[in-house]
Amino acid sequence: MDLGSLLPGNGMEQLWTVKPIQEHNQRIRATVLTCILWNIWKCRNDKVFGGEDEANGQIARRCFDDLLLWSHRCNSPMDRDRIVEWSSFFIRE
């Protein structure tokens, strides 16, 4: 779950070789991936239809917020805690 091993200058290919989203629970992994893709899609729509550029930090913040919100829909307290843990991954202090 640590993206710290990704080097900024090496490109998107690293996402396939490093496999940063290593989550054994398939529902949690699907939720995190859906959140990331959803927020990338919203960023793309803002650019195409609104002419707005969005910083990566804003996208990460939206992922954080969405995962916290979505964690309340989990039936299992363990799943809820795991989603909250993933949400904190997107906000680095």
Rank of each mutant, 00 (worst) to 15 (best):
L68P: 01
K19N: 15
S88Q: 11
P8Y: 10
R44G: 03
K47A: 14
R80F: 02
R62F: 00
F49N: 14
L37A: 14
I59Q: 01
S88F: 10
C74H: 05
V84Q: 15
W70Y: 07
I28G: 10
F90G: 09
W16P: 00
I59D: 00
S71M: 06
P8N: 07
I40V: 14
Q58W: 01
I21W: 14
D66A: 02
I40H: 06
R73E: 09
E13G: 11
W38I: 01
R29H: 09
A60Q: 08
S76A: 06
T31G: 08
T34E: 12
M12A: 12
W70R: 12
N25W: 05
N10I: 01
D65V: 11
N75E: 15
Q58D: 06
S71N: 09
V48Y: 05
R27N: 12
R73Q: 13
D81W: 07
E52L: 13
R80K: 15
N75P: 02
E54H: 02
I21H: 05
I21F: 15
D65Y: 01
R44P: 03
L3F: 12
R27C: 13
A30N: 11
C74P: 04
C43E: 03
A60H: 05
L68F: 11
C35M: 04
E93V: 05
I21Y: 09
R82W: 08
R44F: 02
A60S: 08
H24N: 15
N75A: 13
I28Q: 09
F49Q: 07
R80Y: 02
I40E: 03
L67M: 14
I40S: 08
Q26C: 09
W86I: 08
D2M: 09
E23Y: 07
W86N: 04
I40T: 10
L15K: 01
D2A: 13
R62T: 00
V84P: 02
W38C: 08
N25H: 13
E13N: 04
E52T: 08
K19Y: 03
F49Y: 15
S87R: 05
L3Y: 10
F89S: 09
H72F: 07
K42M: 06
W38F: 12
T17F: 00
M78A: 15
A60F: 10
L68K: 14
A30T: 11
G11R: 03
Q26D: 13
I36M: 12
L33Y: 05
G50D: 11
H24S: 15
K42A: 10
S88K: 14
D81C: 07
G9H: 11
R44H: 11
I28V: 15
W70M: 14
L3H: 04
G11T: 03
A30V: 05
E54M: 11
D66I: 00
N10W: 06
F89K: 06
A30R: 12
D46Y: 04
A60C: 12
L67D: 01
S5F: 06
S71Y: 05
F64G: 00
P20S: 04
A60G: 02
L69C: 06
R29L: 15
L68W: 04
R29N: 08
R44A: 06
A60D: 05
S87G: 04
E93Y: 10
Q26V: 11
R80G: 02
G50K: 13
D79W: 05
H72I: 03
R80M: 14
